[in-house]
Nucleic acid binder design. Sequence first.
DNA 1: CATGAATGAGAATTCATTCAT
DNA 2: CATGAATGAATTCTCATTCAT
Lengths: 202, 202, 202, 202
Amino acid sequence: MATSGQEQATDKRRVILDAAVKVFAREGFYGCRVADIADEAGVAYGLVYHYFRSKDEILDTLFLERWDLMLEEIARVDAEPAPAREKLAAIAGFIVDSYRYDPDLMKVIIVDVTRAANSFGLSHLEKIREAYGLIGGIVESAQQRGELRSDITPTFAAMAFYGAVEQVLSGWIFDILPEAAEDYDQAKEFIVSTICDGLEQR
Amino acid sequence: MATSGQEQATDKRRVILDAAVKVFAREGFYGCRVADIADEAGVAYGLVYHYFRSKDEILDTLFLERWDLMLEEIARVDAEPAPAREKLAAIAGFIVDSYRYDPDLMKVIIVDVTRAANSFGLSHLEKIREAYGLIGGIVESAQQRGELRSDITPTFAAMAFYGAVEQVLSGWIFDILPEAAEDYDQAKEFIVSTICDGLEQR
Amino acid sequence: MATSGQEQATDKRRVILDAAVKVFAREGFYGCRVADIADEAGVAYGLVYHYFRSKDEILDTLFLERWDLMLEEIARVDAEPAPAREKLAAIAGFIVDSYRYDPDLMKVIIVDVTRAANSFGLSHLEKIREAYGLIGGIVESAQQRGELRSDITPTFAAMAFYGAVEQVLSGWIFDILPEAAEDYDQAKEFIVSTICDGLEQR
Amino acid sequence: MATSGQEQATDKRRVILDAAVKVFAREGFYGCRVADIADEAGVAYGLVYHYFRSKDEILDTLFLERWDLMLEEIARVDAEPAPAREKLAAIAGFIVDSYRYDPDLMKVIIVDVTRAANSFGLSHLEKIREAYGLIGGIVESAQQRGELRSDITPTFAAMAFYGAVEQVLSGWIFDILPEAAEDYDQAKEFIVSTICDGLEQR
DNA sequence: CATGAATGAGAATTCATTCAT
DNA sequence: CATGAATGAATTCTCATTCAT
């Protein structure tokens, strides 16, 4: 009975992590104190340090949890025998949905992880490179199959694609883009259409 | 008159700003101390506060100097009677060249300002929105002239374009993209071609 | 009855004390955490507090166990009808052997207890004084019997004697004196000979 | 005029050091807070860290200042063409006077430096070894000249001598030995007489 | 007895900012 | 303008101790 599906209330580690997402999103990684996280989680200060070595490690954990999910998703998508356009659509869709489902977490990852990349050394960068590598791989095979143009390097294409996706999230985060229910679905289409078809009139 | 020959060596304010760029780029805004800036500049601690009200103001100054230049450039480009594609190429070129000329400064702007726009009051956000607005304006008129597709909203198009540009710079900053002399020029072409023509084979 | 054959493995209290000796010796009383002791002992954190009221009490216990043994030994030695020289030799021998048998424990006693006697309330200090008093008593009676010079006060003589002994242990602890099997026996002789006969050529 | 002999009032570094001696002596190195030192010194908290990297470094500095003085004194004494007995008397006298002149400082050095030796790594130990080496050297040459017995190793003799001296100071520190004006001079004689002549009646 | 999660008061250290010279 | 000592609030992290199971 202790391991049934729904005992959220007692997994303090999870509670702390979820609280951290809220607090980081609200005040920024540098703008909040560990005490804020403990307060938000409703636990004692010290418990945060029982589960995490440092404030950094909390951000780290948050990033890795989500990023690994994304890497898995990209790998899964890549394994399907579908055209590149559909694969890119699935990836964009996954990221957009990640934001829709948990905007705070994605805000933290986009805003705070990148900013802290300086101090976090290299482990994050490796993970991030991995994502670009996978996307680049999708582009590359599509180029070999003649689906995509070959005069743009795969890595560059991956950057342009991911940059467009991330900037859309940034647009939502910073209230530059409208953020209604229908905008999420529209964004997925727009991203793929822009990157695959281009902005120019045909 | 401000740039006559021999006062360069004594324009401590400039020296401090340049030192701040190096230090912010190396250690991040939060990762460095005001003392590091003074050290890097080779001036006394207190002098930093003679010229700047606060550490924030240094970053502000750095950002505004460059961003205003970019806004001016975008406005100038927009005023020309050229096709949107050329205008976007000019803007991408300006940003890429900004990075080529002063990568540290662009790193600071992208990592410490752009990504953290909501930590710094609203003035930065306004400036950033202004840039997107100008680019969106370029897209919009091109749509009206029939140059660009009209089914993608101008703001969205602006985000995709700027996102691609920024991600390329991020790629250089974080050693994901190769960064040789020819890569800069190639990047300009790739960005415009990707965003305007799309990745798909025609 | 307390030492019957098979309970050794389960005397957790003893295991904790022995672990504490190792940890205190290695990291110092202030330099280690209670968790380190539990880890070294291979028991659960909380068990330490089942057997001991506090971290201090562990050190207290360690000190008192050994120091009381020494006090008993000194008293036993003193009760013998032997010359002072032999009594001092026996005491020096006991202390040196204590170190030889359990160097970590003696290191802890010398470094963390004896030198810090005034941090730990007064009970330790009393115990320490008691030892000096006993040794002083040995000197005093020997002076009355004409064995030892009477122009040096007994308390002072006790300090000089004990100081020489402790410094030899310190020399071993801090790797200043060589520490081979033969050095222990030699040390006993040297101590007594130096203190009783003096360093000068006769 | 800024470097005249008596401007104590403005050398804050010195003020902090002197305050630290008082506070360490009163509460122990581990028993006091950096705030106590700042308060005792009458300076702002942060100034302590302006002059010293850490609490440890304060203790370090205190130790080295005094120990170097002692090393110099031993070297000076050793350079004189006097019998070993006189040299040892001079050294004992110097240490006893150090205590008489500044008991708090010597208490800190004897009680806290040794205890912290674990954490302070090796630099202290080197310094301490140096002192023993110098004293051992005095003994050794005296042995060669036939002044002192040769069957006791010089290093051991140095330990016994220094141990006796230090224990006398400990006796004062812990209120085991009487501490009146005449006791200081008597102690010097007692130490040398005990170590050189021995306790036994001749 | 045994476990280890939970608590929270402390303490060291940092560092932006001020200010006297 | 220039210097760098002085200030002290803010924060992270530590760790002895408690307690529910």
